[in-house]
Amino acid sequence: MASVNLVYFAWVRERIGRGEETLELPDTVVTAGDLLAHLKTLGEEYEAALEHENVIRVAINQEHVDHDETIAGAREIALFPPMTGG
């Protein structure tokens, strides 16, 4: 088990119902995609937030990553929708 800080933004944050949390992750969670799949097993709020997994963006230690990126060594993992700034 590894402990990781998760942060959520915009409608991902609203649907999960919190902006951040620390979770213990099982060793089977290796990639960002694995993390999304794991979170969806934790409750319906996660299922609602991550329903369309392919649109969810992931950042590890404040840098964008693809879903197949390993989360090993991550201090902070952020999940959020496509960005709409500017």
Partner: peptide, 14 residues
């Protein structure tokens, strides 16, 4: 800068 800012800087509008 604007094209990338809009698509990859982490901001969201409500």
């Amino acid at each position: 800068i604007m094209d990338f800012l809009k698509t990859s800087a982490p901001f969201w509008k409500k």
